[in-house]
Amino acid sequence: MNATRLSLALLLGAALAASPAEAQSKKKKPAATKPAAAPKTTPANAQMTSLQDRRSEGHFPRCTLGIELSDYPAHEVTAARVVVKKAVDDLGTNLVKEDAADVPLEPTQRGQFGKPDDGRPAPPAIVFAEMKNPPRAAKTLKEVSGEIELFVPSRDPNGEARIERFLALAGKAAAHPALRANGVEISFVSKAQLDAERKKAEEAETAKLKKEGYEDADSIRSMVESALYSFPKGEEREVILKVKDPKKAIQEIKAFSGSGERVFGTDSEESGFRVLTFWSEPPKADWTLSVQMRSDSSLVRHTFAFRDVPLP
């Protein structure tokens, strides 16, 4: 009987695994797109916090450099991406990953937990640069440099739309100036609307199959069910949204309880709907939805460079 013990060792393990702190889901995640605009880039006030060289011929080999950004309180940086442009060890090995330029803007671990309490100062933001593993014979990283992009929603007055008591909006569209400013439209799909959409989808799929020559009713029913397997069910812990976001501005959608505590769950796209599924309980009437959106003002870019870093 293996119990989940709330020990420091477990938490440490989780901390390592949770970078970035996004829950794993087999469902399709909403696309984390790169912003179109290119904000001004300045050198970062950056310190190296740790270097992890995870070596394996099997799963998840990686070399990760932790970068602390003293000028940014962790809770203000809700997402980040680090593009490594140069990474070379003392043997001259090029450690830049093939997909280095395509790293998405991902939620930061520390940015998930809200503001610090107990009057303590906020810890600084930490971001991570990913590289290939250097050979065992290498002793140092001669140079690691590139660009850091930070999403700081508090820098843009229209960076966040807080939709209070959103459950009451079932069947309606959210009206918020920040959504309008970013060209975003969000509708809360009611169970009746979802059922109607499913019926339409079933009819369309049935017509398609008949056109392809299928005649047996049972076979068609079974194939329609299979085709619509991932269609949202509108279950108790789910909130179903229809989202129009032509500029791909939405970075993240989060929920908060009536007392302001973050409520964790998953956010996935299924059959054209955006589905929020909460882990611990069904959404309540006093919950608030926070939609965070990227813009030129909320995206900050810095360069960074580290030299002669000893390898662990």
Partner: peptide
């Protein structure tokens, strides 16, 4: 041995180790 992971960490809150699967 199925897989060997040498998880090397410089310093700080995490401790590495050699994992044998």
């Amino acid at each position: 041995a199925k897989e060997v992971v040498d998880d090397r960490i410089s310093e700080g809150m995490m401790k590495g180790g050699l994992v044998l699967l």
